[in-house]
Amino acid sequence: MTKTSGEDPRKTDVKVSLIGGHRLTGETLHERTLTASLIGGADVDLTDVDIPDGADLRITKLSLIGGVSLKVRADVRVEVHGLRLGGVKDDGPSEPGGPTVRVDAWGLLGGVTVRRS
């Protein structure tokens, strides 16, 4: 995860495509990331990233069709918000405390899948 300087702590990365999704890894993300596409999902892998305790990483996904596949460590809390047809699948419990990843997924079709390693 790329740290922002103290001057602009709310920097947002924006990734846009008409057709096709985005593959995001921890070293390419800032604290806020927006990914938008008409058709295409977001594949986010944060397993190799040391997210500090108390950190709040936000990923916003806007698409007509396309969901989010998120891979995190077991100690990371995941909060999913937004409106989409497809629901949320989280294959494991999160431990209390620790860092938080918030996913805001807005779209017509496509769910959010969280996998923990």
Rank of each mutant, 00 (worst) to 15 (best):
T4P: 10
G26L: 09
D8E: 15
V14W: 06
T2N: 09
T2Y: 06
T4V: 15
E7P: 06
R23H: 10
H30M: 08
G6C: 09
K15A: 14
T4R: 04
L18G: 12
D8I: 14
P9A: 09
K11T: 15
T2E: 10
L29F: 08
P9Q: 07
D8N: 08
R10W: 12
D13G: 10
D13Q: 14
G6N: 13
H30L: 09
E7H: 05
T25G: 06
E27L: 09
G20L: 05
S5H: 03
R10M: 00
P9T: 10
P9D: 05
R23G: 15
H22F: 12
G21R: 08
G26E: 02
G21Q: 04
T25R: 13
L29N: 01
S5Q: 07
R23N: 12
T12S: 03
G26Q: 05
L24N: 05
E27A: 14
D13P: 06
V16P: 01
D13E: 14
R10V: 00
R23M: 13
T4S: 09
T2F: 03
V16I: 08
V14M: 03
S17C: 07
L18I: 15
K15I: 12
S5N: 03
E7A: 08
P9L: 06
H22E: 03
R23P: 00
E31V: 04
D13T: 09
V16A: 02
